[in-house]
Design a protein around this nucleic acid. Structure first.
Lengths: 318, 318
DNA sequence: CTGAAAGCGCTTACAG
DNA sequence: CTGAAAGCGCTTACAG
């Protein structure tokens, strides 16, 4: 085990604790011979500064927590998370910060994750996939922790967030289907306790109405943002309305599930049924045929999440 | 912002710092009136103990790091990780520990993750998906951090690990195919810089030899433990050896990819080509038809990883 | 450029 | 059961 610098390096150096620590912290005001001698001793001892002692003074942890309150099955199935985490992980690394991911499978684990985030382990937090009136963002903020939410937070939650244009994107997707002269446009929605689910569904309604049509509840089914949910939803929709000729799925993962159901039912895509997804993720490319999808810029979303959670400078674009 | 207990609760309580801290730490030796009064003050102040100060004394962080040195794409695509992380997350929660996941996309991010793990943020570490001669386990151990590896570590790395019986499982799978009178048994291997890849391939060879057959390099293709790799491998295999009638894939994800390639080529499964996977994960159930697969007990693996990384007591079984 | 003091906010003995 | 001291290992001024 390692010991504090005070008690070890000092012995090797015959000097006070000041010099070694100045070397560790890359202070420019250290004589070169002293620096080299100290560096040799540090390497030899395998000395590592005590982070708790440092954090106690600096009040920084050099890490940012990312919390996703979803079952791992859903986190790990959806390329949206893989992509956005990849981006923000790289963004934090460039700022000398470590991204740490905390996941929660149950209310008990959610409480534990909240404790972790509020008890001084991280310098900031990014929250994904907030449902209903989750109090987590406000709890974290009341503890003075900078918080940013990925995606629009539930109504009434006062917190910064970064999101794509859910309404505009979904509206354009449905409009595109209508312009193909499709007459029976279904939708597979996300969870309706999440703004992304609600807003994309609303845009589907608005696009129908803009084309002079009336939304029909029979043409809607909730797919819960999962592949299995998308598949099941399409099965239900086909049974209820066999004349469906178009579908807007609120995520690529659900669209991929819907494609499976369509193939199993012997429908051709897009000849018999046109399908559009949302995310424009890797999944949209890997289906047969490649899926049309609403693009979300992970580059922009990742960049803004990093900036806002670590208190960085504003960027040129918004 | 919150202030230390010393300066705030004391004012409210007119007592020394001792009593409030005894309440926070659930010491049983506090008079009930004092406890209640302190609890009220704590709730009112929103007081939270300073973790750095506590850690400085206790030398504990109440969290365990899990490191997976793979692109997020691979981590998030494979249900093996979702399942094992779900298990160990629950296991740590039951021990009042928080699981934090650190991922690395590049050598630079790997170094940063190593810094994070060695610089006193965690009380232990679980490492997955080690390649080649990764020095991470030994580096962590030299810093006094308990380390356990999920899956057999690369040759020569001295570290505790938890693994399933790769050879036994793969051997049984291939034997099963041979007993179905399949004559052209292919395999899609994992990466050959990972013991799980090497050992499952070796078992495939051993099972063939045990049946009096000679391994044929034309019947092997590396799928890198990804869905796309499995699909590509099967395409290559079908082109090279159109008479294949069986395949053992070293993971379910690769098997699922292989199924796609088989369907695209017009082969029926299992009539024309029998396929067996490895993991017995959710994917094995969701393919059409359900995939045969070698079972790995995530319950046992998760339990043992938790136990060994947090220094728990031995369990009854091994 | 370098040394030594003060202080970060807890926990841990140890008196009362 | 409760109070007050010592100490964890750093960083941050502040003298020299």
């Amino acid at each position: 085990m390692l010991e504090p610098l005070a008690s070890r390096a000092r012995l090797h150096l015959g000097s006070s604790i000041g010099a070694p620590l100045r070397v560790v912290n890359r202070s420019p005001t250290v004589r070169i011979e002293v620096r080299q001698s100290v560096e040799r001793a540090i390497a030899q001892l395998g000395y590592v500064p005590n982070r708790a002692a440092r954090s106690l003074v600096t009040r920084r942890n050099d890490s940012i927590g990312v919390a996703i309150a979803e079952p791992t099955g859903r986190i790990f199935g959806d390329p949206f998370f893989a992509e956005v985490l990849r981006r923000i992980g790289a963004g934090f690394a460039a700022r000398q910060l470590q991204l740490v991911l905390v996941m929660s499978q149950s209310p008990e684990e959610e409480r534990r994750a909240e404790r972790y985030l509020t008890r001084g382990h991280v310098d900031g937090a990014i929250l994904f996939s907030l449902h209903g009136g989750d109090p987590l963002p406000e709890h974290l903020q009341s503890h003075g922790i900078p918080v940013v939410v990925g995606g629009e937070p539930p109504h009434g939650v006062r917190v910064s967030y970064v999101d794509s244009d859910n309404h505009g994107g979904a509206f354009a997707a449905v409009k595109h289907l209508i312009e193909q002269e499709r007459t029976r446009n279904a939708t597979i929605t996300g969870p309706l306790d999440m703004p992304a689910g609600v807003t994309r569904r609303l845009a589907y309604h608005d696009a129908l109405r803009a084309a002079g049509r009336t939304p029909d509840a029979d043409l809607e089914e909730s797919g819960g943002f999962t592949r299995e949910g998308g598949q099941r939803s399409m099965e239900v929709l086909l049974q209820r309305c066999p004349d469906i000729d178009a579908a807007f799925a609120a995520s690529d993962l659900m669209a991929a599930g819907a494609l499976s159901a369509l193939y199993a039912a012997g429908r051709r895509v897009p000849e018999d049924v046109a399908v559009v997804g949302f995310d424009d993720s890797i999944i949209a490319l890997s289906t047969q045929p490649a899926l049309s999808s609403v693009h979300q810029s992970m580059v922009v979303m990742g960049r803004e999440l990093v900036r806002q959670s670590s208190g960085g400078p504003p960027t040129g674009k918004n």
